[in-house]
């Protein structure tokens, strides 16, 4: 069974979901707890950007958007520029201070919605294919390290780090980040260690990382 999604459909769906997420009922609901804010809202915004980037890569190279992409890609060899942007964006929005600011100040929240989608997900999406395997491995390692670092920080701190979230919520978030880091690490090492067990269809031999 194959379901093909057109670039236009993916882009439309992404934008709609983004608008849905930023409108008050869902935005307030997802920001009411630190766990949802960090582990549901931020990843979803990242994935929205990622889908937009995928859609962008599907457009014909002669079109205006296609030419814009090839210009952008010239300044993004090895995906370096995009990955640096994503690293700063994602790390900053995981800090307690910026989680607080996003919740308390709508201006910050709009900045979060835009940057996590565009400088995070979309940037990774248009960069990743150009990234050499070694650099990919380094980035995977850094993602795992960052998730564990933040996870441990939030889990172990006895102080309430966010003014808008309670300590129990903070500790649950820390624990969840540790679990997420572990799952991420497992997924990344699975193929190099055990081959494509059940993940890709047989005979599809793609580079490991």
């Amino acid at each position: 069974m194959t379901v093909t999604i057109s670039a236009r459909q993916a882009a439309t769906a992404s934008v709609l979901l983004w608008v849905f997420l930023i409108t008050p009922p869902l935005r307030t609901a997802l920001e009411s707890s630190m766990l949802l804010h960090m582990l549901v809202q931020l990843p979803t915004l990242f994935l929205i950007g990622f889908a937009l980037g995928w859609a962008w890569r599907q457009v014909p190279p002669q079109s205006i958007t296609g030419r814009a992409l090839s210009t952008l890609i010239r300044a993004n060899r090895w995906g370096m520029t995009g990955l640096i942007a994503a690293a700063f964006t994602m790390t900053l929005w995981m800090l307690p201070r910026l989680l607080d600011s996003a919740r308390l100040d709508f201006g910050f929240d709009v900045a979060k919605f835009l940057t996590v989608s565009l400088l995070g997900g979309l940037a990774v999406s248009v960069s990743w294919r150009a990234t050499p395997a070694i650099l990919r491995a380094v980035i995977h390692l850094e993602v795992v390290a960052t998730l564990l670092r933040f996870g441990w920080g939030y889990l172990a701190s006895e102080e309430r780090l966010c003014l808008v979230y309670l300590v129990g919520d903070q500790q649950r978030t820390g624990g969840a980040l540790l679990v997420l880091g572990a799952i991420y690490a497992l997924i990344v090492v699975w193929r190099p260690l055990f081959g494509g067990l059940g993940i890709k269809s047989a005979g599809n031999s793609r580079p490991a990382v």
């Binding site: 010239r74 300044a75 640096i84 942007a85 201070r97």
Partner: peptide, 29 residues
Amino acid sequence: ITLLAALVVLSGGLVAGYRFTDGFQAFTL
């Protein structure tokens, strides 16, 4: 071009990081 762009983005990231943590001192409100 990539090196220049990466440098610009890197500086932008550092400036943002500096600005939103008061010089990498205050990570909580």
